[in-house]
Design a protein around this nucleic acid. Structure first.
Lengths: 343, 343
DNA sequence: TATAATATGGAAAACGGTTTCCGGAAAACG
DNA sequence: CGTTTTCCGGAAACCGTTTTCCATATTATA
């Protein structure tokens, strides 16, 4: 690969000058010289080594993105938002998939730090394991102290600016909607116990029940992973309850869609016999049968807003205050929910 | 951040020695000295700067991954496979989402090159634009010449090792399956015209028709993007054909699922009136109603195999021959297809 | 016309590591 | 006991940039 000194030699100038022209430095350089350098650089197909440049300028133009599961449509969409904004601003993303494993999350953050990323977008698992939290807290604090900004996407228990939606309120709204349809017995497919988001959505569900004086029945609230399969499993548990619910609220779309498919297998009509609601509004929600009523989370915007804020922090256009920026959500009422008793 | 010389100073040795102990160099270093260095490094929380290290060792341990659309479940799953293997081997992935835009693909590859990635996994759009192909070809050739291995995932028209499945044969198999069910008029939702994969799957479809002497009718073959929405649009076109097909083969699952939902909206029973088949076997395929008959593409394995091969090339354990490694696929026969005429 | 300001370019010191080459001490060998 | 190895450690070059500081030539100012 041609280096800057190759260009310098061929153009008969010093590397200093070459550096100046390719960086459009403020330091004046003769028009004629400039053109000569540019011409040689072109011919040699010279492109500056980003590593060397980063080493001295202490800015890599790389953003570390930590994600729990990039194949989950929820995160995948967030990633799109992130990468579009990053690209617009000339930043590169180092996307790391932790599979929600605590040790892996920690090691990735460490690696990002070693590579001197300019900032970190933390979309990770939102795990609640306490020793993990402690370690990650230290890691993130160190980073921020060293001037590496961090932005949290979704709900996390670290101290850094955070971009999210109001999970509690949204879950409460959806539950109230089901109640408004006449449902009094509403099953809840909770998210994984070790995710903070799960707790919040569950809280919203409970608050709504409480508001309407509906007793909380642990028998129809079951925890699951955020997957189709677990949505099916949870559904089996919920419908095997002696007094079967007339509605099931899945705390994400994947589980709700799993629920839908299991109910169909069992010959239970949706929404005639049981209404089903989800959370997230992944694109599949619109295409399942029946189309899923769900909370629309602006995933793309979440990613984009997080990245925009991170870039502001990097450029010093904003101060890192520990604040949560909430984006608006909406209720998408589709055909998987209906009034009870039946139409 | 503490540097190697800070450690050296505090441990009372030279940077050379520090480098040797943290790298477990073959050069012998006294056990006592080694421990002292390790202790100081620990205390200072020293971690070597990956950029500096990469600059001199000419190996970044970063893999550039180019992907057309990371939120497409097909690619998302491939990415999982990629990142798991990468992690196992201590490599970091720089994932770049091109949105299938030619200029962006080119600029990303250029950027990866500037960052001196150790290898490139090319999962990009598979675009057919000719000037793009020419430029990309040059770029990739340059890279390989410079010793940066490239592995292609899926079908591409560049010269590098390639990991894929036999798209032609698979599409042919599925078409033959439909024919074996008694269908003689089979609609085809083709992929985007500018994707090489589309052409292959279409070819398989045609070959099957030919084999059974079924005339090819362009009226029931329509091109679409690989999205739900376009699957719906294509379906409208196909079913508005005077002599309506009794089966529709979508060349990926997203379009096939879009097809399913549109048929339902139109009140057309699947599979009683029309059979529907897809391609890819994304996880949603199993959960739609009715579960989708589709070609199972081992997406995760595709990613993993590609990454494994790339790592071999990087480590010099394999030679970069321009060869295509085909992974096995299977036909998943589910409930969206049935014999014609109806049961 | 003497002097200050500006335009233009280079030398050299960083940045933070790895690696080659070398030298002295201790151990092994004859 | 002299000589060859082996063990251990350091000096310095290098990777490819940016940037500070300085030098010279040219032009503007008084």
């Amino acid at each position: 690969m041609p280096s800057i000194s190759d260009v310098a030699k061929l153009a008969g100038v010093s590397v200093t000058t070459v550096s100046r022209v390719i960086n459009n430095s403020a330091h004046p350089v003769n028009q004629e010289t400039r053109e000569r350098v540019l011409k040689v650089a072109q011919e040699l197909n010279f492109v500056p080594n980003a590593l060397a440049r980063a080493l001295v300028s202490d800015s890599t133009h790389m953003i570390g993105v930590l994600v729990g599961d990039a194949s989950d449509p929820y995160f995948a969409t967030i990633l799109r938002g992130i990468s579009v904004i990053a690209r617009e601003e000339g930043y590169l993303t180092m996307i790391c998939n932790s599979d929600r494993l605590p040790e892996i999350e920690l090691s990735y953050v460490q690696m990002m730090s070693n590579y001197h990323v300019d900032g970190i977008l933390f979309t990770g698992g939102g795990l609640t394991d306490s020793s993990y939290i402690q370690e990650m807290r230290n890691l993130l604090a160190d980073l921020q102290e060293r001037g590496v900004p961090v932005v949290l996407l979704g709900t996390h228990r670290f101290s850094a600016p955070q971009v999210s939606i109001d999970n509690v309120q949204a879950a409460m709204d959806m539950t109230e909607y089901l109640i408004s349809l006449g449902h009094k017995r509403i099953g809840f497919i909770n998210g994984p116990d070790l995710l903070t988001t799960s707790a919040l959505r569950l809280e919203g569900y409970c608050k709504a029940l409480e508001k309407y004086g509906i007793p909380y029945d642990p028998g129809i609230v079951v925890s699951s992973e955020f997957t189709y399969e677990d949505g099916q499993r949870a559904t089996d548990l919920i419908i095997s309850c002696p007094e079967r619910p007339t509605a099931i609220f899945g705390s994400n779309d994947l589980t709700a869609i799993g629920c839908l498919s299991r109910l169909r297998e069992r010959g239970i009509q949706v929404p005639e016999e049981i209404s089903v609601a989800g959370f997230d509004d992944i694109s599949a929600a619109r295409y399942v049968n029946p189309p899923l009523t769900t909370v629309h989370v602006p995933m793309w915007d979440l990613g984009a807003a997080g990245m925009r804020h991170l870039l502001k922090l990097i450029k010093g256009e904003a101060q890192a205050v520990e604040e949560t920026y909430l984006l608006p959500y909406t209720l998408e009422k589709r055909q998987s929910t209906a009034a009870y008793p039946g139409r």
